[in-house]
Design a protein around this nucleic acid. Structure first.
Lengths: 344, 344
DNA sequence: GTTAGCACTCTCTTGTTCAGAGTGCTAATG
DNA sequence: CATTAGCACTCTGAACAAGAGAGTGCTAAC
């Protein structure tokens, strides 16, 4: 267990380093007015903290820098919520009070504000489409052999795909198909669609339509919608202003990660609720070695969940980001849920 | 007018510099087996070419580098088509022969292949949505006060937007509205929709529906679809491998440009047909100072046009890129037009 | 237990030197 | 008279040295 003095010193080092990005020396610490020990004492404590794995040196005679373990400890035991400035609160309020019409717009704006306020990068996962429920099927014929299949969900999301029609598929067949689909599947969550399509409608379709097998194939394709919500970014280039990103290789690694949807998704963890912090290698990704991710979830209505992540250097202002994320997360939940209920 | 020898030297310098990214000296030029002059002669010619503005020096005693004017001349007068290797042609063929189902997929793949083959960045503008024609309107009610308005176009594109319904807007009103819209506007290009909506349908709507004014407002919103097609990127991070991008500020400027849709669009020029090359400052954008853009257009069916752009350093392999772009552009036109006609 | 003092270490900046690459000019050459 | 050999000159970039600055670890004194 760490002594009070060690806690205090660790805290100062993290706070200082987060602010300045420079290794922190004993003299610098002793200058803080609320530190009453001499540099020599601090040096001794720092040597101990280093032995325990909370601190690191960049070279033999440099000041100390928090290690991953140091950040972890800080985050777990020393984090205190930070109050935001009036301006900042005002900015966020205006985001949610504004009469913005589209859900998507609110989400997009949130991502931007978050990255503006933190100068880190924000990734916002839209509400999980898989939990939306089917409101209406629609098939619009384009040519003899092609049509667009459309699924509208209960909160206004639209999925669509072009499909091939079997030869000799008459307009009346389309109508029949659509009716069958709507009868059986309205109200089903998208994620279950594939299964329920097979169980509940294929048999019926075969009874009513000659070329059912062929159209069934096409429909299967349509309903394999992505499970995850859409990805929105804010401040993609903010990270380039961080001093740790003077290394082009890191820049490239991060940019490549952000370009690959699957890798971005893997930064989120399905089980997470509330706010989670993953530091450096805890993210299990080479490109994230020196980066931390703070994630939070928000909800729309009762179940549709989305996630927010902020990516910053491990040397990030955890207190500030956590507070900020909490405000946005609850605001977003409130506003989006309202939109869902009141309609739009 | 330049002498033959000057042309030859300019060509060698551009080719060499494109390959090596190093200033080209007189000795190096004289080593080429087809160059019969001595370094001293070449030095004299280079001094002349510099005076004429085709070459530049990086410092008083460095080799020469092509100036923007030099590239321009090279591109206008010295460019010869380059034949592709068997492998490359094979790769491209496979792209177009593959039975890929969705248009979007083909476009996405094209962007990727182009950037893989060039190691530059590709921007692909999907077919201009504005020229699509309305196939069908649809309004799906979600709640008492909200609905999703959907426009399906003749080649399977789907536009949708959530709208607010006036109080007391009955299901029968929706039906009426949809019917009126479909009667009057099917076949209209999206780009004319706004105008024709006002001219041809508002009056009729007012006659049949009480709360017409309110719904008209919502509809207006729906039909202001983006004129430009969707933007696809390939090899966004390729540029980081180019030696000219060791400067972080340039990286940031370019990344920021690519994140802003309007700026990306501004790299394309509406009137362009065929292949166009814009070198460095010809792009009228600070972030593009050291970059060239080669654009080409492709067509789908008779009129829907899309564009391809390749962004590389001014020191890019113009011959190769032009050849490549020409192959892709015609392949894309062919395949997409076929999809449109045969139906998917 | 705490701290002053001091030798030691490492980085970073600045200045110097030197090889290498390339130029421009002049004078010689076919 | 166009071409070229020769040479002095310039600039870059790498290598090295020296010194300031910041910080440490250890010892001995308080």
């Amino acid at each position: 267990m760490l002594t009070n003095r060690q806690l205090q010193i660790l805290q100062v080092i993290v706070d200082d380093f987060v602010f300045s990005a420079q290794p922190v020396g004993s003299r610098q610490i002793s200058k803080k007015e609320w530190i009453t020990y001499s540099p020599a004492t601090i040096r001794n404590e720092m040597a101990d903290l280093e032995e325990l794995g909370f601190l690191e040196k960049t070279h033999t005679s440099s000041g100390r820098v928090p290690s991953e373990k140091g950040y972890r400890f800080y985050v777990d035991h020393l984090l205190q919520p930070k109050t935001m400035s009036i301006q900042e609160i005002g900015l966020i309020q205006s985001l949610f009070q504004n009469q913005i019409v589209e859900m998507e717009q609110v989400i997009r704006e949130s991502a931007n504000i978050l990255s503006d306020l933190t100068s880190y990068t924000t990734i916002l996962l839209g509400p999980n489409v898989g939990k939306h429920r089917v409101k209406r099927f629609q098939i619009v014929p384009l040519t003899e052999q092609t049509a667009v299949a459309i699924i509208v969900t209960d909160n206004g999301h639209v999925e669509n795909r072009t499909i091939t029609l079997p030869k000799g598929f008459a307009p009346s067949d389309i109508e029949k198909t659509v009716n069958i689909l709507n009868e059986r599947l309205v109200g089903a969550p998208l994620i279950e669609l594939q299964k329920r399509l097979e169980l509940e409608t294929f048999e019926v379709l075969r009874q009513h339509i000659n070329t059912a097998d062929s159209i069934i194939q096409s429909l299967k394709n349509v309903v394999t919608v992505q499970n995850e919500g859409k990805i929105y970014f804010g401040g993609k280039t903010n990270m380039l202003n961080q001093p740790e990103f003077h290394d082009l290789n890191k820049v490239r690694a991060l940019m490549e990660l952000m370009d690959k949807e699957s890798q971005v998704i893997s930064l989120f963890h399905p089980g997470d609720t509330g706010i989670h912090i993953r530091i450096g290698s805890e993210n299990n990704h080479l490109a994230m070695e020196d980066l931390s991710v703070i994630t939070a979830t928000y909800s729309v209505g009762k179940e549709q969940e989305g996630s927010i992540a902020i990516i910053g250097p491990t040397r990030m202002d955890y207190q500030r980001v956590v507070s900020l994320l909490d405000i946005i997360r609850s605001g977003l939940s409130r506003v989006l849920s309202n939109k869902l209920n009141d309609g739009l």
